[in-house]
Nucleic acid binder design. Structure first.
Lengths: 221, 221
DNA sequence: GCTAAAATGGTATCCAGTACCATGGGCTGG
DNA sequence: CCAGCCCATGGTACTGGATACCATTTTAGC
């Protein structure tokens, strides 16, 4: 137990110093000095200063990609909205560490930008997955794929940020709801050319009781 | 005419060198040397090396914010999908310059990340605007605001990238279509609690001819 | 223990970005 | 026309992240 790896010691020292003195006022030398290690060692374990804070982002992205490859869902959107849960689960597992990171990224613009960039990589992965799926099913609508990917990512981030702020006691339930909302947005509408689009789902009422409202809606447009 | 400003000479030298030798192999000294100016002058005109490429992003964001402030549209989503056109118009005005920038951001990860970060600022602006609007109208659905902002930005970027790649002869028409699609996604549905959601818009047909299809949809769920 | 491989450390260097002060040229008021 | 001023430019020096390269120590396998 008295042998934390060099990597761990560096991360620990880094987070401690970031908390004490702020991210920008902490130099790599400060970190390595507190960790009792050499400067070279730092850069061997972390590609950059920012990387101490986001160590396993690449791995997580890979996991999500794998989940997509091996997924067997009815639609691309469902597959993606399922795969994205891996990300939420990862953060929730990290627990307090994730919250400390959030506190840092909220304050330091450089870190926020980095976080945003990595979120964009998920979005890109999702977009390409959905677009590929659509190409398979002879439905070429790249904009639709773009919107789906953006919606899934936005919904996920919404729930994640709520949890990070401590506003969400049950993020799993919330992400379920959020994804249901996203899927609802794109719920395959009955399309008749350029004409009417109708979406109807999860009704408990008789259709007939809704016809008046439907008529009003159609007239209002 | 023989008196381009220092700022212009720097930008010109920078772009030329980026094209010739690549962004990363070009140093600030290279740029200032070719421009026949001092290193200090560079940083007085541009905050950073990346800033030569994205000079007026802040100004544009401000313009969009102003447009939102002074907008008088029926819904927040329409206001936002209108304001975002300023961005597209700006890029299209830039013409070839925008395309050169796109070529750079496509190749250089650091620049791509920066571009993504600035896109995120628009998204944030939109999200806050929509959320504020919803708060006014006593409809507190922050996730919905998040999704709307994400969708508008995604749709805009889709059209913009198509234009940048030379795939879009008429970006204004395309952005119209894209925004119509986004607004359609969120078209205010008749909501009865947890029950049925119905969306119907732009129909040319009589409602009655659609009732059978509607029944089938509702039954299938 | 011994040796090969891997982890660590040191040094030098590059380059972006900041701080500070010097200079020079053009413009205005006198 | 000149004095004084403002402002753009320039130079110099420094910080700190990141890379390259080589020396050294530690560890692991036998």
């Amino acid at each position: 137990m008295s042998k934390p790896t060099a990597r761990e010691r560096l991360a620990e020292a880094a987070f401690a110093l970031f908390d004490e003195a702020g991210y920008e006022h902490t130099t790599i030398d400060d970190i390595t000095e507190r960790a009792g290690l050499g400067r070279t060692t730092f850069f061997r374990h972390y590609r950059s200063k920012e990387d101490v804070i986001f160590p396993d982002h690449d791995r997580l992205l890979e996991q999500v990609a794998n989940r997509l490859q091996t997924s067997s869902h009815a639609t691309a959107l469902v597959a993606v909205s399922d795969a994205v849960r891996l990300v939420l689960a990862h953060y929730v597992d990290e627990g307090d560490l994730a919250r400390r990171r959030y506190a840092l990224t909220s304050r330091v613009p450089a870190l926020r930008d980095r976080e945003i960039a990595s979120v964009a990589r998920y979005q890109r992965l999702f977009r390409e997955f959905i677009a590929g799926w659509m190409a398979d099913t002879a439905e070429p609508a790249p904009l639709r794929a773009e919107l789906m990917a953006a919606a899934v990512v936005a919904a996920h981030n919404h729930v994640l940020r709520r949890w990070l702020r401590g506003d969400s006691p049950d993020p799993n339930r919330e992400v379920d709801e959020a994804m249901r909302m996203v899927i609802g947005l794109f719920a395959s509408p009955a399309q008749d050319g350029n004409g009417t689009t109708i979406v109807a789902f999860r009704t408990g009422q008789e259709i007939d009781t809704l016809i008046p409202a439907l008529r009003r809606l159609a007239d209002a447009t």
